[in-house]
C-alpha cells in the first residue's frame, strides 16, 4: 500500500533527515513509527502525501509514484487522510462544516448526503452532540476526534497520524487512542507517529524505529518490545521505562 524505496532527504547541505529508508506498509496494516525526537518520524510520514518533498528514492502509494511530477498531488491526497498533532480544525466553520467541506467540494457530494455521513462519523467518535459547535468550544481531545472524523469523511483507504496525542492533556489521550483503536479494526491502512508505546503494543501490526533518519527496526510489537535487535532501540526502550 505504501512503499518507501531508498528515500533520502536533507534539510540543507548538513542535516540528513532521512537516510535510505526502505520499507513497506501492507494493505490494512497498522504501523507505529517511534524514535527519539529529531529522528525524522514526522518528516517520514509527511513525505507520504508530499507535504514534504524528498531528494531521492521513491514512495509508492497504492500503486502510484507519490513524488512524480506527472501525478497530480491533489488527487493523491484525496485518498490519504492526515491527522495533525495540532488538529488544525478550521476555526471559522462549525464541526459539521469542517467535516463536510472536503467531500462536498472535492467529491461533489450533496450537502444533505455529506451531512448525513458527517453525523455518522461524529457518532462513531462519540461526538454526535457537537455537530453545531465551533472548534474553539471543544477540548483538545474532542478537537482531535473531530479531526479524525474529518479525515475519514473522504473515505480514504489510508490514514496517517502525526503525533495525534502529543498536544493533549494527559486525561484526554485515552479518548483519542480509543477512537484510533476502533479505527484499526476496520481494515483501513494506518500509519502513526506516536510516543504511546501502549498503543503500539496493543494495536500495531508492526513497529518501526527511526534514529537520525535511519530505519533501524521494523518488527512485530512483541519482538520490538521484548527483544529489540539494535542497541539504539534497546537504549530508547530503556529510557522509556524510567
Amino acid at each position: 500500500m505504501i512503499r518507501f524505496d531508498k528515500v533520502n532527504k536533507w534539510y540543507g547541505p548538513q542535516l540528513k533527515v532521512l537516510n535510505e529508508v526502505t520499507a513497506e506498509v501492507k494493505k490494512g496494516e497498522v504501523v507505529v513509527v517511534c524514535g527519539p525526537s529529531g529522528s525524522g518520524k514526522t518528516t517520514l510520514i509527511r513525505t507520504i502525501n508530499r507535504l514534504e518533498p524528498i531528494d531521492s528514492g521513491s514512495i509508492t502509494v497504492n500503486g502510484t509514484d507519490a513524488h512524480s511530477s506527472k501525478n497530480n498531488v491533489n488527487t493523491l491526497r484525496r485518498d490519504i487522510g492526515f491527522v495533525f498533532q495540532q488538529f488544525n480544525l478550521f476555526p471559522h466553520m462549525s464541526v459539521l462544516n469542517n467535516i463536510t467541506l472536503a467531500p462536498r467540494k472535492l467529491r461533489g457530494m450533496s450537502r444533505a448526503a455529506a451531512e448525513e455521513k458527517a453525523r455518522e462519523l461524529l457518532d462513531r467518535v462519540g461526538l454526535a452532540d457537537k455537530a453545531e459547535a465551533y472548534p474553539a468550544q471543544l477540548s483538545g481531545g474532542q478537537s482531535q476526534r473531530v479531526a479524525i472524523a474529518r479525515s475519514l469523511a473522504m473515505d480514504p483507504p489510508i490514514i496517517l497520524f502525526d503525533e495525534p496525542t502529543s498536544a493533549l492533556d494527559p486525561e484526554m489521550v485515552g479518548e483519542v487512542l480509543a477512537v484510533m483503536k476502533g479505527l484499526a479494526t476496520t481494515g483501513i491502512t494506518m500509519m502513526c507517529v506516536t510516543h504511546e508505546m501502549g498503543f503500539a503494543r496493543d494495536v500495531a501490526d508492526r513497529v518501526w524505529f527511526l534514529d537520525k533518519g535511519n530505519l533501524l527496526e521494523d518488527a512485530k510489537p512483541d519482538e520490538f518490545f521484548s527483544n529489540p535487535t539494535h542497541p539504539r532501540a534497546q537504549r530508547f526502550l530503556a529510557d522509556l521505562r524510567h
Binding site: 502525501n49 491533489n74 493523491l76 491526497r77 495533525f84 488544525n88 478550521f90 467541506l101 472535492l106 473522504m154
Partner: peptide, 20 residues
Amino acid sequence: TQYEAGRSFGFNYLQTMSYI
C-alpha cells in the same frame, strides 16, 4: 498550518485560499 491542512485534503492553492 491552516493552509497545510487544506492542502492535505487535496484542495489546490486557490481552493485552499478561498475556502480556508
